[in-house]
């Protein structure tokens, strides 16, 4: 067993920080778009409009049946072609990033949609009746009465999903994008210190995710009283 040699890490910190920025950028984008688009999907699925509900269900179920790795590869195949055809954008280095952002945003929407749907269903039916009885139309009822309560109920779940998402962004490795994990792998490979860099990356992920999950738990406790 070799002894560990951590000396290549301090010099690599700027590269690793750049990688972490990419990780955070993908996480934030996917979370934001995911919650917005996920809300639309959830409401469509709960709506009385049969074709609309069916389409939303098909979207959600398809994305939830396919591995994220495949979804990332799919969009890395589709997005560049579309960008070229519609916008005339040439194959630039940014294309990996754009593909990844699209893939994660659309993929996470399916998962957020299910959380939000459960959240909406957790609001008692009487609340909708009361809003209707006060003369609020459906959109106003959703916006003022149902969704605020639903989001409050599901805040811990939404944040937990964000932690999972943060970890899953490491899979952009399959299209060669240098997120935090990709950067760590590259540095480790370059310096012949893969073992150290992998353990370091694992430790960083653990500290961030464990810390965040403790915060979520605290929040949950505060809200549940």
């Amino acid at each position: 067993m070799d002894t560990f040699d951590w000396t290549s890490i301090p010099g690599a910190l700027p590269i690793l920080a750049d990688g972490m920025l990419i990780t955070l950028e993908i996480t934030a984008t996917a979370m934001l778009v995911g919650i917005l688009w996920g809300t639309v999907l959830a409401l469509a699925r709960l709506s009385g409009n049969r074709p609309l509900a069916w389409l939303a269900a098909a979207y959600v179920n398809l994305f939830r049946a396919v591995p994220l790795v495949m979804v990332i590869l799919w969009f890395y195949l589709i997005v560049p072609t579309l960008l070229q055809r519609w916008l005339g954008v040439s194959q630039s280095s940014d294309i990996r990033m754009i593909s990844a952002l699209v893939a994660f945003a659309l993929f996470e929407s399916a998962y957020y949609a299910e959380i939000i749907r459960a959240g909406v269903q957790s609001v008692p039916k009487g609340q909708v009746d009361a809003a209707f009885a006060l003369g609020m139309p459906y959109p106003l009822t959703m916006r003022l009465v149902v969704l605020p309560q639903a989001f409050r109920n599901m805040l811990p779940l939404l944040l937990t999903q964000a932690i999972i998402l943060f970890q899953d962004t490491s899979l952009v490795y399959v299209i060669g994008l240098a997120d935090f994990f990709g950067a760590a792998y590259k540095v480790g490979d370059r310096d012949g210190r893969l073992v150290e860099l992998l353990l370091f990356a694992g430790a960083v992920y653990f500290i961030l995710c464990f810390g965040a999950s403790l915060l979520v738990r605290q929040l949950q406790k505060k809200y549940s009283t």
Binding site: P124, G126, Q127, D129, A130, A131, F132, A133, L134, G135, M136, P137, L144, V145, P148, Q149, R152
Partner: peptide
């Protein structure tokens, strides 16, 4: 317009249904 009509009719429910938030 059902919403318009309901705005003129007050209703009180068994479980109060105040908006808790």
């Amino acid at each position: 317009n059902l919403s318009k009509l309901r705005a003129q009719v007050g209703m009180v429910f068994q479980n109060f249904e105040l908006f808790p938030h």
